[in-house]
Amino acid sequence: MNIFRISADLLHLASFFILIFKMKATKSCKGISFKTQLMYTLVFTCRYLDLFHVLGMMITFNFAHITGLTLYNTFMKILFLAASYYIVYLMRTELKSTSDDARDTFVLWHILAPCAVLALIFNAQFTILEILWTFSIYLEAVAVMPQLMLLIETGEADSLSSHYMFAVGGYRALYLVNWVYRYATEPYYSNWIAWIAGFVQTALFGDFFYYYFVKIMSGDAALKLPT
């Protein structure tokens, strides 16, 4: 665990709270892509199936392999799952009437199918858990595409939506730094699947970061994209 990794996780956690706060405070989810949020629930569900393994060890009092890092990861995984499911729940229940569904036109199969095929071909181990983990890594990299498409369609984002996008993009960018750090300091550390996907994910946010910083610097609250 290094400072980049922990900052990344906290930024990721902050992104959920920013989004939930925004939706609760404005009683609206306008400008937020339901499809992107739905993809995040799928990402975490596929990636964190090992929670059952940890849970299984705990209820059988097999604590030999449970370290501080396992407890930290388990705690965060449960938080991420709960937050992403709660967001999807909010968007489909009390805030449904404010949802931008008509403009949320991205075709999810265009990312789901390639990610599934890639996960079946390029994985570290041909097991169900490992393939689902790999699928989640690939899907997370591109899950923001419906959100970006909605942003381009709308042409602007309010202040909280921009902060949310910054937090989601920033977290993976910090993971890139974390991977460089770990590669330099841990002799056997290497995870090219996560590295490549993480790079793609951060690159997708590239344009957004640029406009975000320009707007923050100029002191504008709302982010308007050039038409």
Partner: peptide
Amino acid sequence: DEDFDDHDEL
């Protein structure tokens, strides 16, 4: 035997 922690990141 413990491969669950192979992915020690979130």
